[in-house]
């Protein structure tokens, strides 16, 4: 199928191209799309219709995965503006930011798997979440003003924080075991 015909993820969900997304609305539309276009609804159709239904359902699934994840959504917004995200350089990042991240990394690494550490973990998590939403706000501001390179810089920081957040999750998992 010609890719040019496919709608972008926001169009697919009939949503404005922006960072802010209402989770409930997204989920509702996702269910609605799936309920109508899932291959299960095309079991008696022609091979062609089956193929297209499969293709679109996969696209709807992929779009939903991207739109519901703040970090993936930010990345996709930049990709829509043809911003090149391939190079992974931290060279231009502010030293204070990098220092801060290394510090958090260290705090995480120091944690043993003892349950007594869970309070510390909760504190780190809260700290990270707060940093992430702050960065997201800056991202939104840059993006709205068509300052896509500025948005990219915020995104790169968001990526850092996001990785730390998943580290915290893993720690949490190990802790409960």
């Amino acid at each position: 199928m010609p890719n040019t015909l496919l709608p972008n993820y926001f169009e697919l969900f009939d949503l404005p191209i922006q960072y802010a997304v209402d989770d409930e609305c997204l989920k509702e539309r996702y269910h609605k799309l799936q309920s109508n276009f899932h291959p299960d609804r095309f079991l008696d159709s022609t091979e062609q219709e089956k193929r297209i239904a499969l293709h679109y359902t996969a696209l709807i699934n992929e779009a939903y995965t991207v739109l519901k994840s703040p970090i993936k959504r930010a990345k996709y917004l930049l990709e829509l503006q043809q911003i090149d995200l391939s190079e992974e350089n931290v060279g231009h990042m502010a030293p204070e930011f990098l220092m801060q991240q290394m510090d958090l990394h260290e705090r995480l690494a120091m944690l043993s798997n003892a349950v007594s550490q869970s309070a510390e973990l909760v504190a780190i998590d809260a700290d990270l979440q707060q940093q992430f939403s702050q960065l997201a706000n800056e991202f939104i501001e840059c993006y709205q003003n068509s300052n896509f390179l500025g948005a990219k810089k915020q995104f790169e920081k968001m990526q850092f924080i996001d990785k730390l957040i998943s580290l915290v999750k893993q720690k949490n998992y190990a802790l409960c075991d």
């Binding site: 199928m1 015909l5 697919l12 609605k32 276009f37």
Partner: peptide
Amino acid sequence: SQESEEFAAKRMNLAIRKLLSGRS
């Protein structure tokens, strides 16, 4: 099938638009 693929995809896009705008 190949020949009508583009037509089918366009119809799909139309159906999706109708579905969601109907919703709002």
